[in-house]
């Protein structure tokens, strides 16, 4: 079941609770907008949330799992299960439009689709140069914008 289906079929309380779970590092961006929530399955006894990390080795998994369970237990009395899909299939296409916009504006993080370097999210020129394949986290590369002279990180 895709997330679009999920939004229609699951209890809106569950979806709004998941929307309120923020990424531990981007504290103002929801895990739903980051495309980390992959599917929600419900039975009479339990709610199973399937999550897809941006990278299989993501060190934030335990914290996210804890926050999801805590958020859902507040709105649902069934047993809450969290399962991680570790096939590495997260791509930047899973980011919502608002997440892309927010990552650029608030965090100076650009999104790369395909091979080419993205435009600078701050000055909107094509002046980014990749400096390092990984930065403070393994899911982001480090780039320098020679036009506005800011350090940009790149997802994807």
């Amino acid at each position: 079941m895709t997330l679009a289906d999920v939004a229609h079929r699951t209890d809106s309380l569950i979806m709004s609770a998941l929307h309120a779970v923020m990424d531990p590092e981007y504290g103002t961006v929801s895990i739903v907008d980051l495309g980390i929530v992959d599917a929600v399955d419900e039975t009479a006894e339990r709610v199973t949330v399937q999550l897809l990390p941006t990278m299989a080795g993501c060190p934030a998994r335990e914290v996210i799992e804890h926050d999801v369970k805590a958020a859902l237990s507040r709105v649902d009395r069934r047993k809450i299960d969290v399962k991680w899909r570790l096939d590495g299939s997260w791509t930047p296409e899973r980011l919502s439009h608002s997440a892309c916009e927010q990552l650029g504006r608030e965090f100076s993080v650009a999104i790369r689709h395909g091979e080419a370097l993205p435009t600078c999210p701050l000055c909107l020129t094509d002046a980014l140069r990749e400096v390092a394949a990984v930065g403070p986290t393994r899911c982001r590369a480090v780039a320098w914008c020679s036009h506005c002279r800011n350090v940009i990180e790149i997802v994807g």
């Binding site: 531990p24 590092e25 504290g27 914290v63 100076s108």
Partner: peptide, 20 residues
């Protein structure tokens, strides 16, 4: 100083995660 403030936004987010 803008360029410092922008990287601090990410650094502060990550340090907050360390505290947890």
């Amino acid at each position: 100083y803008g360029p410092y403030k922008r990287i601090l936004r990410r650094i502060v987010g990550e340090e907050g995660f360390h505290m947890r």
